[in-house]
Each structure stands twice: as C-alpha cells, then as structure tokens.
Design a protein around this nucleic acid. Structure first.
Lengths: 250, 250
DNA sequence: GATTTAGTGGACGAACTAGTTAGTTCTTAC
DNA sequence: GTAAGAACTAACTAGTTCGTCCACTAAATC
C-alpha cells in the first residue's frame, strides 16, 4: 500500500488524477525513436493508439529486461516507465513471460533487419570476410542491450526462444552470405582451409559477443576495459586479422 | 503462512521435528565432492561443524545461483536444499548478496587453482600455445556452472566483484604464462606478430566461453548444438588452429 | 445518434520473499 | 561437571510482486 496520500481521498490530488490528464501522448512514449512508425499526418494524433501503446511497452520492457534480467525486472516498474498502466501489459501481452518473449522476438527481428543490409559481395573474398567481421563487430558494439538480452535468455537455456514458433526456420541470411564468400575464396585459392560457414559465424560472434558481454568481469579481474573507445579500432582489426589468418593458413 | 498443518499444533508432527532428526550429517552435504575436505578419521563425525555447514551452503547456493540467476534464486530454496536452515545462511553470510559474493569468490578461486596446474613450458611455443588453448577449452567445457555465474555477474555489470576486495590485485597466472610463451615464440621466429598476452587470453576465452554460455540460443536459432560430444574435438582443434594461425601469420 | 467494442485506469489481493526474533542444543575450556 | 559461547532451529514479519477485477471512456459501426 504505497502513497497513503493518494488513497486517503485527498480531493485535489484525486481530481487532478481523474481529469483527462494533460494528454501529451507521444511525450513519454518514443524516447528517441522519434516519428516514423505511424503516419502522423493522417488526422489529429489519436488519444488511443493500440499499436503505439504496444510499441511503447515493448520499448520500455526491452530496456528494463536488459538492465535487470528476466527475474530481476519488475512488471510494476516497466508499467511505471510507460505512458500507460500495468493493466495494458496484461491486455496486450498476457503476462511477464509473454512480454519477455515479445521483447526477444523484437530484438532478433532487429538484428535480422541489419543483416539484410550487409553488402560485401562486390569485394574479393579476403576483404569481404574481413568487412563482414567488422560489420558484425560494429553492430554488437552499438547494441549492447541486444547482447544482454541474449545472455539472459541463455541463462534460461533459451527455453522461451525454443517455445516461440518460427525462430529456427527463419535461417539467418548471414550464414548464406558467409557460405558464398567461403566458396569464392576456396575457388580463388585464397582460403586454403575447408570451413563450415556456421563455424566461422561462431568464431566471429564469440569474439564480438564476449567483448561486449564479458566486459565487466574482464575489467574487474584484469583491469582492462574492452569497451574503451581507444582500443575499439585495435580490437576490430584484431578480429579481422584472426579470421583472415585462420582461413588463409595452411 | 504456509503449512497450516504444522502450525496447528499437531503433536505428532511437531515432536518428530523436534527430535534430533535422524542425523545423517554428510548425506545431503557434499553431494559428489566426496570425502576430502575434512580429516574424517579424527573421531566420530561431529553433529555440528561450522566449516562443513558453510561449505554445504556454498555448494548448494552455487548450483542454485548458476541455475536461476541472482534475482531468480530463492534464499528459501537454497536453505531447503541444504542440510541446515535459512537462518544459518544469514548467520554465516549475512544476506543474499554476500552469499552471492562468496559463491563468486569460490568459483574464481577454483579456476585460479586449475591455472596453477598448467604446465606447458617444456613444449615449443606453437605446441605450448595450442596446448594452453586446449586446456582452457577443456576447463570451460567441464565447468559450465562457472561460466553461468560469470555471465550472471556480467549482467550485473560486475558490481559485486568490483566491491569485493582483492580480485584485481590477484593477477591471473595464465597471463604471465602466455607472456612467456609469446616471448619465446617471437625469439624463435615462430610468431611473426607482436601480440599482447591479455589480448590473446581474450581471444581464447571468448571462443571457449561463447561455446558454453551461448550454446542454447545458438542451438535455438541455427539448430546446432555446440556442446555435442561429437563436435567437441572438432571445436577444440578449430580453436588451436585459429590461435596458431593468428600468431604465425604475417 | 445509439450501440457495440477496443482500449484504459487504478485499486486490490493472494502468494511469495528477504530478513528477523526468540529461543534451544551441542561443544569446549576450565 | 559445568559455564560460556558457538551452532543451530522453527516460526514469524514487513514489504514486495504478479496478476485480476470492475468501472469506465474513446472510437468504430450501424
């Protein structure tokens, strides 16, 4: 029972709350995402917008889950930071667990979209694979929350991802891209090793993910900040060197 | 207020509970660790043993935290799986957070101890670094709970590790070992690249950690089990190949 | 303009959870 | 043998947390 004040029947406070509440719809909603998701020119901004409310909840929930973990995140806290109420979370998502799944799906959809934009086929195999590694590096570097969500889901042994339909089937386009680069490289004689595309993807991912995900314990133990701006370029080059060395070695 | 039964003053139940409780001290305690931590020949097994109780709690707590995460783990659950009660957790550790720190410290002490046993100095630089990578690989492979604890602590941005004194100072012996191997390799001309020992350690760790920590989401998305016995040797060799290729490449 | 339906708000409650209280029993030092 | 203190226990408490109830309003439909 928080805020005895509000419950005590304080007329002024209550009336203020009951009033249509200085509706400032988008204000708290899209913090940063800016306009774009909805055709805003079409009439006066709606007071009720299911899609917008849903998106708002997802956005806030993503931050909160990434920050606190699944068990650590609080539904009340998420609701409070939304422009709507807790009731809406249950209305749109059903519960904490389904909200978490929706957050995961959104996060993976984001990375899939980014993968679509990769264009390295015009480069020679060695440059292409290095460029691909660097793009992966950059994406992970600028999306630490995604990495955190993945880490959290791994603690839960991916039970939610596994239960959610349509994940495995949606095979990532990068794997095909890597396969094509590797084939070209072998043909040209640049890559002297027979490598499985998925294994190479794992090699690249492990490096990029570790640098972001294990940054904190690494720093606590070895006193080195893997995420420092100064060393960013160094680690990016090192990744490219490693991948190229592995593929071109005897 | 659970178990109205017990509270209702059911004489039989209560008397049974009050009885010294078929003392079977070690039974629930060291599940698997077997004998070793205490000189068992010295007199009849004690009914009270502070060190043993403490160790028992730590053992159970480690499993529970690794399984559920920090926020997800329940003090009551930990207590229940111990041969003692919840009060003892607070008696010995002070609280959930301090228990977590103790669990972390114990886990890191374990890996430090393992690092002490590494002996590869008699090998030539290339073989030595490959062997070191393989030993790291094996250790991570057989201690998934340690990896989980580290992942969890990273979600919390290592705030506990940072607060716990005497972590950074205890510089890991592997780094020195790697430094010596790299120096030898450069002298002999086998390693043509100037590499920072800590960076190489990161390269090896990232691969080993990812394979264990991200196994679940990787499987859910790409339908490949990184932890499968069949592929273990393959991934171990691949790590060695990668590290050696990186160091020996132009 | 009336009716229906999608969307919303806020308070409530049952179950849970970290931590505590008040007391008992075993061990050891003398 | 016994007193002091360490080791231990069951039951309890205060506060939290997920989820729901019910009354209500804006928008869509007729």
């Amino acid at each position: 029972m928080p805020r005895a004040q509000d419950v005590a029947g304080d007329g002024r406070t209550r009336r203020k709350a009951a009033t249509p509440r200085a509706r400032n719809p988008r204000a708290a909603a899209d913090g940063g995402k800016a306009a774009g998701s909805k055709p805003q020119g079409a009439g006066p901004a709606r007071q009720r917008d299911a899609e917008q409310t849903r998106a708002d909840i997802l956005e806030v929930a993503s931050r909160e889950f990434a920050e606190q973990g699944y068990a650590g995140a609080r539904v009340d806290q998420i609701a409070e930071r939304t422009r709507t109420t807790k009731r809406m979370i249950y209305y749109y998502f059903g519960g904490k667990e389904q909200l978490w799944i929706a957050v995961l799906e959104r996060a993976y959809a984001g990375i899939r979209a980014a993968e679509q934009d990769i264009d390295v086929e015009h480069l020679d195999p060695v440059s292409a694979i290095r460029r691909l590694a660097e793009l992966t590096f950059d994406h992970h570097d600028s999306h630490p929350d995604f990495i955190r969500l993945v880490s959290i889901e791994n603690i839960h042994r991916a039970e939610h991802l596994e239960r959610s339909p349509g994940f495995a089937s949606l095979n990532s386009p990068v794997i095909d891209l890597i396969a094509r680069i590797l084939a070209r490289g072998r043909e040209s004689g640049a890559f002297r090793r027979q490598v499985d595309p998925l294994d190479l993807h794992m090699l690249i991912s492990s490096y990029c993910v570790f640098r972001v995900a294990n940054r904190y314990t690494f720093r606590a133990i070895f006193d080195r900040d893997l995420g420092s701006r100064d060393r960013r370029e160094h680690y990016r080059t090192m990744l490219g060197d490693t991948v190229v060395a592995y593929l071109t070695a005897e």
